[in-house]
């Protein structure tokens, strides 16, 4: 076979494999993770000045930790969760991965006295420009055994919200 075509086949194979591995890695919590529902703090869903995504804050985004210092910024932290009616709230925290139980992994992004601002990687939700995103107060996430989380659905009082997109018309 021609050298260029051989190179092309190798390249396409690497491309497909690369994207497949990336997809698998990013989807892993959704495929294998446990479903937990977290409460969000009130967020203005119409604030889309930052682009086509919205920032979500959770009750567990700010956590009180003893003996916190600026040097803890960037550290990984595991928030151990407990079920409280239909939601999961913080029970305790650990800087080492827990052996068992429900937990979510985050990273300390900021420190204010004894309060740590934690980022879990689920603080952004992308949606189409011009879409109408109604208010929500809960987020259903999937958390893998390593503590990595992915957003599954946005909820209002336990019910999934319906994002309205622009109507497709022949004249639109």
């Amino acid at each position: 076979m021609n050298k260029n075509y051989t190179k092309l086949i190798i390249f396409i194979t690497i491309l497909i494999l690369g994207f497949a591995i990336a997809m698998l890695y990013l989807s892993w919590p959704r495929l294998t993770g446990k479903t937990i529902v977290l409460r969000t703090t009130p967020v203005d869903p119409f604030d889309i000045l930052r682009g086509q995504y919205m920032t979500i804050r959770y009750e567990i985004s700010s956590v009180n930790i003893n003996d916190l210092s600026e040097g803890d910024i960037g550290k990984s932290i595991y928030i151990i969760l407990k079920k409280d009616n239909d939601f999961y709230t913080m029970s305790s925290y650990s800087f080492d991965k827990p052996e068992s139980g429900d937990f979510i992994k985050g990273k300390i992004e900021g420190v204010n006295g004894n309060n740590a601002v934690i980022n879990y990687g689920i603080e952004q939700y992308f949606f189409e420009r011009g879409a109408y995103v109604p208010q929500f107060n809960q987020v259903e996430v999937k958390v893998s055994s390593s503590g990595a989380a992915r957003i599954n659905r946005l909820l209002i009082n336990g019910e999934e919200i319906v994002i309205k997109y622009r109507d497709k018309e022949w004249t639109s």
Partner: peptide, 18 residues
């Protein structure tokens, strides 16, 4: 297109925006 695809896939899976 490769660059665009990477960004779009990152958006699809909601990777961190910082």
């Amino acid at each position: 297109l490769y660059t665009l695809s990477v960004f779009l896939i990152a958006q699809i899976y909601g990777t961190p925006t910082g």
